[in-house]
Write a protein that binds this DNA or RNA. Sequence first.
DNA 1: GTGTTTGTTATCAA
DNA 2: CTTGATAACAAACA
Length: 293
Amino acid sequence: MPELPEVETIRQDLNERLIGYQFKKVIVYDFRNVAPSASFLTKKLVGLKIIKFDRRGKLLIIRLSDKNLNLLIHLKMTGQLILQFKKEILAGGHSLSNDSFLGAVGGSLPNSYTRVQFNLSKGAKLYFNDLRKFGYIKLIQTEKLNSILKIAFGPEPLDKEFSLIFFQNLLKRHKVPIKALLLNQSAISGLGNIYVDESLFIAKIKPTRISNLLNNDEVKNLRLAIRRVLIKAIKYRGTTFSDFVDLKGKRGNFSDHLLVYGRKGQNCLKCNQEIKKIKLVGRGTHYCSNCQF
DNA sequence: GTGTTTGTTATCAA
DNA sequence: CTTGATAACAAACA
């Protein structure tokens, strides 16, 4: 379940390691979620260099030496990007001990979950693994990308655009459970099920509350809670609940700091009451009925 | 066989 | 046009 902090962790690591690398060969093992087609991807990408890794919400954007083209990677639920350098390959598949790997990436690569493999210059290899095949890889024209980003993506919660005024107006305009609004990527980018539940707990607001009925203090607290939890989660390199791992196959450490997500039946860390789990807008939703109003 | 898991989109209603 | 509600889909697992 990679959300903003998980994708940001990967983006930062890629930016430190792969700027200037050139695509030498692209191997597509599973065609399903590669667009516009595997052959197009293979042909167009080879020879291009990586300029920079960007992120918008949960979407990873690779800027290429062909300014008109961008490589998009969405991890959806179970996608992983694993990076190997040459000496790691020579050392026997990977450089990390087995216990730092999850099942999906354990052992040598490519494995049965590898959907696309990028061979880069200097022997570097980037693997896109995706157990459930929900994620995608797309080569897209810059103009088209820009129009999609404008329409389908709300402001980044950590940018200036996500101001109190903006947030107040957004909540006022909508009459839906606050959780539904926070999950809506065209309203705010990057939040998913985990960080929405965590933010609402920190802000002491029940996920079922209708957005336009929150009072001023609650709106203010919620905005700060969202920013706080995202910044902290990035610092801890994301949350691993099931499949997320970083470039080296390592789990995210924020899992140890979750307050409500995945804690159904356990005691609230603030008040000791039992954490509840309900289904809201089709999603598992965790909250404390004593701390949240 | 059944119910769950989540990010996203399609579809229909108002 | 906007907004809301809900189902569907991807694939796997307990």
